[in-house]
Amino acid sequence: MNRHLISAADLSLDDAVAILDTAEEFATLAERPIPKLPTLRGRTVVNLFYEDSTRTRISFEAAAKRLSADVINFSAKGSSVAKGESLKDTALTLQAMGADAVVIRHGSSGAPHRLAGWVRGSVVNAGDGTHEHPTQALLDAFTMRRRLGRLDGLRVTIVGDILHSRVARSNVWLLRTLGAQVTLVAPPTLLPVAVDGWPAAVSYDFSSVLPDSDVVMMLRVQHERMSDAYFPSVREYSRRYGLDGDRMALLPDHAIVMHPGPMNRGVEIAADVADSPRSTIVEQVTNGVSVRMAVLYLLLSGSREPAEPAVATTGGLAPAGERAMSAAAAEAGL
């Protein structure tokens, strides 16, 4: 099977923990005088970005470069893609260039699944439409574990546009796997109708869940949701679902405040909350590089067809091998 990271839902507990543990090692390496490793020398990582997302692209680029991979940035703007080249043709081009991994950001849900069917290298989902953003969820979990020491039993409240949020989706599935308890808070218009089937509780009353939250994760609100009548006004949204100083005071002392960025200060999060010691927003950015290094390392080490049959491995489990990281659902069609 292919070796991809497309959905956080595909990660087993062992996979997820292996990624977080590996990221922990990479985080310590970052403090060394020479933070660069030769690990992926000669491997090519393509950043295929159909949406502008400088921060995510830079994070993946830094991760790949610290592992000595060659990085090719393939932006949809100004390229053949803008001239109407199909994703499939682009995939075949990348294949011909010998891409070992393609990091894809795309406005359409499922684009990474399609890409995985057209390239031999690993596909890493850097955010697809309103589907998933698995490395964001991994770096969020990593940040929670670093700050609070554990994930199992952690009470995580995710607030905002759950319906359209790939960050929320990936977090719900990953946190379920890692044993955390998730509560979703949103206006009912911004929750999927089938949310009752998700491994998460739902509340419409933000303030009431705060005293029982170890983590509050605020999602970015898109202004265009207002014109689609998801809520009456930004002011009303902010009043009911924004995190300000008064609400933050309801949190237990140890609780942290997260945001995947970019923030709308004054809308979903007040400036003093974003800048408070509880806020992990800057750490999340730093941790993103370590987590993406871990993902690239685990996906790209080893080869599809081992040159020789596996002999006894060193004691312990080999993490996240091919089968574990594969997107089983991707090819499950008839």
Partner: peptide
């Protein structure tokens, strides 16, 4: 992370 056989074997912890 410095091994010369990383391409040949499954990822290691």
């Amino acid at each position: 992370l410095y091994r010369d056989d990383l391409r040949l074997r499954p990822a290691r912890t």
